[in-house]
Amino acid sequence: MTLKKKRQSKSLAAGRPPVFQRPKSITRKATKALINKHHLLEKRKKQALAKGEAQQAAAIDAEIEALGGLGSYQEASLQGQRHDRGGDSSRVLMEWLQTSLTSHKEVSGRPLKMLEVGALSTQNACSQSSHFDIVRIDLHSQGEGILQQDFMERPLPKNDSELFDIISLSLVLNFVPDPKGRGEMLRRASKFLRAPGRYLDSSSLTINFPSLFLVLPAPCVTNSRYLDEELLTKIMTSLGYVKTASKTTQRLVYYLWKRDSALQASGKRFAKKEIRAGSTRNNFAIILD
């Protein structure tokens, strides 16, 4: 007689692994395809909603859920933070800031405040550095220590205690489905940063703070019909930033933009305009109304 195996009941926690558990590995090619598919569907959904096509938008939502929803996008993004896939993008930021942060800590001992938008982990380089008091938010929290929140709906700061020294937008702007939304995100980020004059008593901080850490897939800047580094610099300058550091790899572009007391947001408009022709170009753009 065949004995039936006793079924073991599973807890709710079994269906949701902790944030520190490594996700099941998928190939780099599959990761890229999944992320690109999510971006395409989000863009189509945004267009459908703009046209009032609720039924079409619902159908696209179903496609997104069939791919695994936002969770599958985030899992694919987490693959990119593995050391064998290029690693944690905040390691680049720490390389840029290490000298000024060390000098600041020796003088004051006070950690700086960081807002990490689109946070996927509580174990990245910035978190482990002890230099930052970090508020982490994401549309779909991956675990404790990450607040589930839409940055575009986060209440604006009411006082100085709610402002930040640095904001991280690492592989976040490219997930915003439309160019105007990307421009609004960049403009809104400035409202959460401290004023540049706040650091006049600390020469080590004046060099880099307050600042915005921006990371994008390299093709968004290097192979777009509507955006290159020159135009991105003009957009950021119009918002009151100056570039203090940058790095370009095959996969990613990294920027550190400091709010400059000598620059005021100009309110200048930037429309979607072709600056590079070619059938192999992508359509990534940033619009400031």
Rank of each mutant, 00 (worst) to 15 (best):
T2K: 13
K4A: 09
K10V: 05
S11Q: 13
L12G: 11
R16C: 05
P18A: 08
L34W: 07
K43F: 14
K43E: 10
A48W: 04
K51G: 01
E53T: 03
A54Y: 06
D61N: 12
A66G: 06
A66D: 12
S72I: 01
A76N: 03
L78F: 04
G80M: 14
G80Y: 03
D84H: 15
G86A: 09
D88I: 10
S90P: 03
W96K: 03
L97V: 12
M114A: 10
L115Q: 03
A125P: 00
S141E: 02
G145D: 11
M152P: 13
S161T: 14
F164I: 02
F164K: 00
I166K: 02
S168W: 00
L171S: 13
V172T: 09
V172A: 02
L173M: 06
N174F: 04
K180G: 14
G183E: 07
A195P: 15
F213S: 05
L216P: 10
P217I: 00
C220L: 08
V221P: 08
D228N: 15
D228C: 10
M236S: 01
T244H: 06
K247I: 07
K247R: 09
T248H: 14
K268Q: 15
A271N: 11
E274S: 05
I275V: 10
I286W: 01
